[in-house]
Nucleic acid binder design. Structure first.
Length: 296
DNA sequence: CTTACGGCCTGGGTGC
DNA sequence: TGCACCCAGGCCGTAA
């Protein structure tokens, strides 16, 4: 569910309430298979103070300093990935507990941070000093920080399908299914086009599209398609501005053609058949695996 | 080194 | 009402 704009929105929400707060207690549910080392959370977190909130692509890092054991002065951090259905909400401990809430962090201001995750595709764990860099090192460019030149360099040096490239976290960090489709539609590029085969004009248009889509989505506090809420429990509004995502069968906002859904890079991909021309290899009667598809 | 695909998990929607 | 199936903002491990 959450992509860069949603995670950024959560990060900003947490920045407004967490820094300076001390974690006074940790409680976990019985289902902790999404936590790297549950015991480490219970052992390390109590007594730490939040010093900052960082976002790397779709990862959230809550930076902490130890305040109890002075000999162990090292900084640690709580790493969180929201997966598809993860939610972090800070609120009153008396608030009703949503189903699938698996982590409760008591704070010294009397409030409580809760992590809820229906599908448990999320991830959580303690980061010690070195692990911080190791994680970030495996991630690609932050799209909103990349220059146009870096962007072009990265895209044109890979031969994968552009959709797969944009969603590959080792290439760009933070893009997911929604914002990839929305960006490709704005740039009028078919998701199956290959990175190497994009013209300079197309790459330029895509760069702008990505910048604009992400920036506007952050301004709208993300997209709430089904589960997403920010750290106040509020939904985003960018879903009202989606131009292709989940609009199969509806008219293209630009040309009126019927939006299609196809599978690209293993994911549902929505595009306009007229605005986003398919590459040659795909346009013809190319034999592609369709699985058990029913034609009606 | 790529890329493709199944699996992980739960719930909502649809069609029979 | 039940059941089977498909689908969902993501990623990881394995196979080719």
């Amino acid at each position: 569910m959450p992509e860069l704009p949603e995670v950024e929105t959560v990060a900003r929400g947490l920045r407004a309430v967490l820094p300076g707060r001390r974690i006074t207690g940790v409680r976990l549910s019985a289902k902790t298979d999404f936590i790297d080392d549950p015991a480490a959370l219970e052992r390390e977190l109590p007594g730490t103070r939040v010093t900052g909130i960082k976002r790397y692509g779709k990862f959230l890092v809550i930076e902490l300093e130890r305040t109890k054991q002075a000999e162990e002065s090292g900084q640690i951090a709580l790493l969180i990935h929201l997966g598809m259905t993860g939610q972090i909400v800070v609120g009153a401990p008396e608030a009703p507990v949503l189903p699938h809430t698996h982590v409760f962090l008591a704070l010294d201001d009397g409030r409580e941070l809760r992590y809820t995750d229906i599908r448990r595709f999320g991830r959580m764990g303690i980061l010690l000093d070195g692990e911080h860099e190791a994680l970030i090192g495996r991630l690609g460019l932050e799209p909103l920080e990349a220059s146009e030149r870096e962007f072009r360099q990265t895209i044109t040096s890979r031969s994968a399908q552009i959709k797969a490239l944009l969603m590959d976290q080792r290439v760009f960090r933070g893009m997911g299914n929604i914002y990839t489709d929305e960006s490709l539609w704005r740039a009028k590029i078919h998701p199956r086009r290959l990175g190497t085969k994009l013209s300079e004009r197309e790459v330029k248009a895509l760069y702008k599209a990505v910048q604009n889509v992400l920036t506007e989505a952050i301004r709208s506090r993300g997209s709430s398609v089904s589960d997403y809420v920010d750290s106040d429990g509020q939904q985003g509004e960018f879903q009202l501005r989606h131009r292709v995502y989940q609009r199969e069968g509806k008219k293209c906002f630009r040309c009126g053609s019927v939006i299609r859904r196809i599978i690209v890079a293993g994911r549902s991909s929505f595009s306009c058949p007229r605005c986003q021309r398919a590459p040659r290899s795909v346009r013809g009667g190319g034999r592609r695996k369709q699985g058990k598809r029913t034609y009606s």
